[in-house]
């Protein structure tokens, strides 16, 4: 049952003299939720980019469902059935909500199935009232929700979300939590996040990054009460 969907072995990323990711060994099981936390510059986002193909790691390997995918292009990774949401919203501003989602659906479905899929996602994410609106005219929270829609429309088995709750209102975050809970019935999810409130409300296991390396990996409660983690977050010497 516990199939490993994502694994990295001694993943290292250097930018000149800076080691942003240092020997990260990471494993994720099917339908597992894992949050990656850590202070600014801890290497979370670099790790995320190495996994999604946005960066090619200096050393180490990435495996997805047992296949090596190190150095693959983002579109090749996504084609495996991996949904990716980057830190900054990446949407098509002058296209409508339904067109945005349709484009994502079309990658994995025929035209007719895509139309059905779009209707289904719009329904599930309660986007019906804004389906024909251009993305550029929407509020930040709505855009995030749409982006989540186009990440999940292809029924991914692995979803990678970089700061999905950034800049959202409490109500939007609540809605996001429900959507993610629902996602977990089908896919494994990795969330890179700063918002501790959000992490507390959804997280089970948490991986803490610090100075490019994994500091600890444990259940959220254990992590929150850990003195080292607290020090790291407060900027004290660990």
């Amino acid at each position: 049952m516990a199939e490993t969907v994502l694994e990295t072995s001694s993943l290292t990323m250097r930018f000149g003299g800076v080691t942003a990711c240092d020997n990260v060994d990471f494993k994720l099981q099917a339908r597992e939720l894992r949050c990656l936390i850590g202070p600014n510059g801890a290497g979370k986002s670099t790790f995320f980019k190495c996994v999604t193909g946005l960066l090619s790691p200096t050393e180490g390997n990435v495996y997805m469902r047992g296949d090596e995918v190190t150095g693959w292009q983002p579109h090749q990774i996504a084609s495996l059935g991996v949904g990716i949401k980057t830190q900054t919203p990446n949407v098509m501003d002058s296209l409508t909500v339904s067109e945005n989602i349709w484009l994502a659906a079309r990658r994995f479905h025929s035209v007719i199935d895509s139309n059905a899929k779009v209707a289904e996602v719009i329904d599930r994410l309660a986007l019906g009232s804004i389906a024909k609106t251009d993305l550029g005219q929407l509020a930040h929270g709505e855009r995030q929700r749409v982006e989540l829609g186009l990440v999940t429309v292809g029924d991914p088995w692995l979803v990678l979300l970089d700061e999905p709750a950034a800049g959202m209102s409490a109500k939007d975050v609540e809605r996001m939590t429900v959507i993610i809970e629902e996602l977990l019935t089908r896919s494994a999810v990795i969330i890179v996040e700063h918002d501790m409130q959000f992490i507390r409300s959804i997280a089970r296991d948490v991986t803490v990054f610090h100075q490019g390396a994994v500091l600890m990996e444990d259940h959220v409660d254990a992590v929150m009460s850990d003195q080292t983690v607290r020090n790291v977050y407060l900027g004290k010497k660990a």
Binding site: Q73, Q76, A78, T86, N90, V91, L95, L150
Partner: peptide
């Protein structure tokens, strides 16, 4: 339609899995 998506946001289209 995908070409139009590329015009709008290349990164997003490649993250969707299009070459």
């Amino acid at each position: 339609r995908i070409a139009l998506g590329i015009r709008e946001n290349e990164t997003r289209i490649s993250l969707m899995g299009y070459d």
